[in-house]
Write a protein that binds this DNA or RNA. Structure first.
Lengths: 338, 338
DNA sequence: GAAACAACCGAAAACGATTTCGGAAGATGG
DNA sequence: CCATCTTCCGAAATCGTTTTCGGTTGTTTC
C-alpha cells in the first residue's frame, strides 16, 4: 500500500535504523544521507505508520475529546470551544480527536484509553459519570473536565464562573428595578447548576429580597423544553417581571412563551440567558446574556491535559474563568408599579 | 501499565496464541479454556492494544469525519448529522472519530489516511479540495463526501436535493401569487450552490417568468452577512415581494432588514429559508424553510463509507435525498396589486 | 606509530497482537 | 493393531517502527 521505511532503506541501500534515525533527526547520521533519506521519503510519499510508531513508542500524540451525540446542545458549546482546543493541541504536537459516545456504549471512553488509542482525555461536562472519573483517576490517565466543577480534589477542571454569572445576572435585573425575578434550573444535580442556583439565591438575599420558591422552576435543556416551565411562571397570580434562564435556548423558549401570553419582551418581562450563543443574536429581541469565553476554555482545557501528559506528576488544575455580561435587547428597566 | 495478552498467558500457563484465539472466538480452542481465558481477561481489565492489533491486522476499524473548525456554521450541520452517523458506525463495528482540520495544516487528512490511522473518510462539504479528493481517489482510499455533489463520477456523495429544494421554494412562492422573487446565492462556485441556483432559474422560466438579474444577489454564510445583500434588494426601484434565501441564517438577516425598512414579514414581503434550523422557530415570524433530513444524511454517508471499506470494488454511490418544505409564518399570499 | 576518539552506519531486539503451520495427544474406523 | 482423523495447543513469523549497542572506518593526539 503506502511506502514503509524498508522501501526507503532498500532503494537507498541503507538499513532501516539509519533511515529511521535520519528521519527523526538524530545526529547519528551524516547530513548527506539525512538529506537523501528525507528527499526520497517525500518522493515516495512516506508517512510513518501510526500503529507501528505508537506500538513502539508507547504513545500516540493524540488526545480525545469525548461528547455524547445524544445531547444536542453540546454542539453549540463545542463550536465555541473547538477552535481554541484544536489550535492548542496542534501547538503541543498533539492531535485532537473527537470521540462520539452513544448511549448504547458508555464504556467507549475507558476502552479507548486502555487500548492506548489516546494519551489524554478532555471530558465534556455532560458526561460526568462517577465511575468513569474514578477509573481514569485509578489508571492515572491524564484528563481534564471541561465545563463542570468536580468535587474531587484530584481532578483538573476548567469551568466558567457560573456562580458569578448568576450573581451578575440578578444584579443586572435588580439594578433595572426588578424585584420578582424567576430562575430556571436543571433537574439533575451537579455543581455547575448548584453554583448557578447559589448565585441567584445569594444575590437576592444580599439585596434583602425574600426567596419565593414558586419563582424557581426546573427544566431540562432540550429543544422546546423551556416552554412548559415558562408557562408555569407566567401563569402565576403574581408573575415574575424578569426571568433568569440558565441557557440561551431556554431564554428563547421563554421569549416565545411571553409572546404567546401577549407580553412584550422586554417591556413587560425581561429575560436574560446564559452562554452568549450566536443564536441569541438573531432572536427578536436579541437576548441579554452571560457570555463564557468558550475559545479560552477550549484552549486552557487542552493545555492542561497536554501538560499533564508531559509531566504526569503535576498537581491538578482548578480553573474558574470569568464570564461577561452582554446587555442586549431582552432586558429593560422595570416600568410597572412597585 | 495495562494488562497484555502475555499477562493472561503466563497466569494461565498458556501460550499467547491460544489466548488470542480464545478471545477472538476461534474454534481452535476448547470451550473450557476459552471461558477461562475470557474470565481472567475481564478480571485483569484486559483491552487489546489498538496499535498492536491495527499493525498486525492492517486496519483500525475507525473512520474519520473531517471538519474545519474555522467554519462556524458547519457545527449546525454537524449537530444534525452526528447522531445518525455515530450510531450507524457503531452498527458496522466502526468507530467514528471527528478530526479537526485547521487552516494551518491542510494536509492533516491525507496524513491521517497514509499513516493508517483510519480506514475510511467522511468529507464534509466545506472541505472540498480538488487535490485532497484526487489524492484519495489515487490511493483508492474509501471515502464519501457529505453535503456536496462532486462532478467526478468516481466519488461517492450523499447530498440533499438542493435543486428540488429551490424549485419547491419558488413554486411555493409562485403558488402564493408572487412574481418578483429574489434569490441569494453564494459567491464560491460549487455544485451545491449551482444546483440551488439552477432550481430557482428553472422554476421561474418554466412558469414563464423572465429572469431579472438584479434579483439575484451574492452573500457569504456568516453571521450578519445577509444584511447588506438584503438591503440591496429592498432598495431596488421595484423590490421583490419574496426572497428565497439559501440558508436560514440569511433568512433571519433578511427578516431583520425587512423590519429595518418598515416592511412587515410576511405581509409586505415573504421570506423563505433553507436548512430547517431550530433557530428558525424562534424568530418572529417563524421561518418557512426547506428541511434537510440531516440525521438520515449522516446515517447514509456512514453506511456508504463502511460498505466501501468492506467491499472496495463497489461502484460509487451518488445519493440525492429529498428535502421537505416546512411552511411556517414567513411566507404569505401576495396581497399587492398586480 | 600506537592509542584514543569521532563520525557513521547496521544488526537485532523490542512493542503487542494475529495467524499460519505443525505437533501431540486421544478418538475412531477397519 | 495400525492408520486416519479430530481436537487442542504452541512455536514462530509477521506487521512497521524505534532504539540500543556495537562495529567499521578514518582522524586526531601524544
Amino acid at each position: 500500500m503506502t511506502a514503509t521505511i524498508t522501501d526507503i532503506a532498500q532503494r537507498l541501500k541503507l538499513s532501516n535504523s539509519t533511515v529511521s534515525k535520519a528521519l527523526n533527526g538524530y545526529h547519528d547520521v551524516s547530513v548527506a544521507t539525512r538529506e537523501l533519506v528525507r528527499k526520497t521519503a517525500t518522493e515516495l510519499g512516506y508517512q510513518p505508520s501510526a500503529a507501528a510508531r505508537s506500538l513502539r513508542r508507547g504513545r500516540t500524540d493524540k488526545i480525545g475529546l469525548f461528547l455524547n451525540t445524544a445531547i444536542t446542545y453540546v454542539v453549540d458549546f463545542l463550536s465555541g470551544v473547538l477552535p481554541g482546543a484544536a489550535l492548542t493541541a496542534q501547538g503541543w504536537g498533539q492531535n485532537l480527536l473527537i470521540y462520539t459516545i452513544t448511549d448504547n456504549d458508555p464504556g467507549h471512553l475507558l476502552k479507548a484509553c486502555r487500548a492506548g488509542e489516546i494519551d489524554g482525555v478532555i471530558l465534556f461536562s455532560t458526561h460526568y459519570d462517577h465511575r468513569t472519573i474514578n477509573a481514569l483517576l485509578e489508571a492515572e490517565f491524564p484528563f481534564v473536565v471541561m465545563g463542570r466543577e468536580i468535587a474531587d480534589e484530584r481532578v483538573s477542571y476548567v469551568v466558567p464562573d457560573y456562580y458569578r454569572g448568576s450573581v451578575m445576572a440578578v444584579e443586572h435585573l435588580l439594578a433595572l428595578g426588578h424585584r420578582r425575578i424567576a430562575f430556571t434550573t436543571r433537574p439533575e444535580l451537579g455543581t455547575a447548576n448548584n453554583a448557578r442556583l447559589r448565585g441567584y439565591l445569594d444575590a437576592l438575599t444580599s439585596a434583602g429580597i425574600a426567596i419565593d420558591e414558586r419563582l424557581i422552576v426546573e427544566t431540562r435543556i432540550q429543544p422546546f423544553s423551556g416552554i412548559e416551565p415558562t408557562r408555569q411562571l407566567l401563569s402565576l397570580k403574581s408573575p415574575p417581571t424578569a426571568i433568569c434562564a440558565f441557557h440561551d435556548l431556554i431564554a428563547m423558549d421563554a421569549i416565545s412563551v411571553a409572546q404567546e401570553y401577549g407580553l412584550r419582551v422586554p417591556d413587560d418581562v425581561s429575560i436574560i440567558g446564559f452562554d452568549g450563543l450566536r443564536a441569541g443574536l438573531i432572536t427578536t429581541p436579541q437576548i441579554t446574556t452571560l457570555a463564557q469565553p468558550l475559545e479560552y476554555i477550549g484552549q486552557r482545557a487542552t493545555e492542561v491535559v497536554c501538560q499533564q501528559i508531559a509531566e504526569p506528576d503535576r498537581p491538578p488544575v482548578h480553573e474558574v474563568v470569568p464570564v461577561e455580561l452582554i446587555v442586549r435587547g431582552s432586558t429593560k428597566q422595570y416600568s410597572g408599579g412597585v
